[in-house]
C-alpha cells in the first residue's frame, strides 16, 4: 500500500504540471488576447501561476516523500515533537510577504480597467460621450448607437441585435444596462467581464487591437435561455467602422425596394 499510495500522491504533481504543460497546444488555454489590457491580465495570471505552481509541486512532492519515507514498517516510535517556533515563524512570514506582493502587484491593472478615473479621456469616446449602450435582456443583446446628434434617446438611434461593432485601436467606452435580470458582458478575447445590473448604468471600456469577430457571452445566470445569449463583437478598422455606421444610419430609412432588387 505504501508504494501504491506514494505513486498516487506523486502522480498529482506530475500529471498536474503535465496537463498544464500540454494544455496550450490542445487549445485548452486562453483564447488570444486582443485588447489593450488583456496582456496585463495574462501577465498577472502567469505570475500567480508560477508562484502557485512551485508551491504546489513542492508541497505535493514533500507529501509524497513523507508517505514513501515514513510509511515503512518501523517498530520504533515517531519523533516526539510538538512543533518548532522558528519554523512556524518562517513559514508564516515568507508566504505573508509573497501574498502581499501578489496583492499589491494586482492593484494597478484593476484600477486601469475598472476605476472611473482611469477611463480614457482623450479619444472619441469618453465616459460622458460613450460609443453607445449595450442592453441585455432575457435572452437578447441590443446595442444602441446614438443618432447623429449624439443623442441616445431619439427615434433615430441605431439598434443592432446580438452584434457590437466597434472601431479598431481606439478606446471604446460604452454603457452597460439591463432591462430585466442580471446579465454579464463577457468577451474572452478581451479579458473583459462586467455584470449588467437592472437599475444601474455601468460604463465599461476596452480597446481592441486586432480586427475580427469575437464571441460575446453572457456570464451571469439569467434564466433558462442563458446559453442562448451568444452575441458577437465585431472589430473593424476605424474608417470601415465609420462607413458602417453611416450605412446603418442610411439603412434606417430604407424603403424596402432594395430587397426587391436583390431578388430580381
Amino acid at each position: 500500500m505504501r508504494l501504491i499510495a506514494t505513486l498516487l500522491f506523486l502522480l498529482v504533481p506530475i500529471l498536474g504540471v503535465w496537463t498544464f504543460w500540454i494544455a496550450p497546444e490542445h487549445g485548452w488555454w486562453f483564447p488570444k488576447s486582443v485588447s489593450s489590457y488583456g496582456a496585463d491580465i495574462d501577465r498577472l495570471f502567469y505570475i500567480i501561476l508560477w508562484m502557485v505552481g512551485i508551491t504546489f509541486v513542492a508541497t505535493e512532492v514533500i507529501l509524497a516523500w513523507c508517505i514513501f519515507r515514513y510509511g515503512r514498517k518501523d517498530p520504533s516510535k515517531a519523533a516526539f515533537t510538538h512543533g518548532n517556533h522558528t519554523l512556524e515563524m518562517v513559514w508564516t512570514a515568507v508566504p505573508a510577504v509573497l501574498l502581499l506582493f501578489i496583492a499589491f502587484s494586482q492593484m494597478k491593472v484593476w484600477a486601469d480597467v475598472k476605476f472611473g478615473d482611469s477611463f480614457p479621456k482623450d479619444g472619441r469616446f469618453t465616459i460622458d460621450e460613450p460609443i453607445g449602450e449595450v442592453w441585455a435582456s432575457q435572452f437578447d443583446w441590443r446595442v444602441r448607437y446614438p443618432d447623429e446628434d449624439g443623442n441616445l434617446e431619439g427615434a433615430d438611434v441605431i439598434e443592432k441585435a446580438f452584434e457590437f461593432t466597434v472601431p479598431l485601436g481606439e478606446p471604446v467606452v460604452f454603457n452597460l444596462r439591463s432591462r430585466d435580470v442580471l446579465h454579464s458582458f463577457f468577451v474572452p478575447n478581451f479579458r473583459l467581464k462586467q455584470d449588467a445590473v437592472p437599475g444601474m448604468v455601468i460604463p465599461v471600456w476596452f480597446q481592441a487591437d486586432e480586427p475580427g469577430e469575437y464571441d460575446l457571452i453572457c456570464a451571469e445566470l439569467c434564466g433558462w435561455g442563458h446559453y442562448k445569449m451568444a452575441g458577437r463583437v465585431r472589430v473593424l478598422p476605424a474608417d470601415e467602422y465609420d462607413a458602417w455606421l453611416a450605412a446603418e444610419r442610411e439603412a434606417l430609412y430604407a424603403n424596402g425596394t432594395e430587397e426587391l432588387e436583390e431578388d430580381e
Binding site: 472611473g116 437599475g199 455601468i202 460604463p203
Partner: peptide, 12 residues
C-alpha cells in the same frame, strides 16, 4: 429611472 452614476465609475 436609472440612477446617476457615482464618481468611481458606475458602480454601486
Amino acid at each position: 429611472h436609472a440612477p446617476e452614476r457615482g464618481d468611481e465609475g458606475a458602480h454601486g
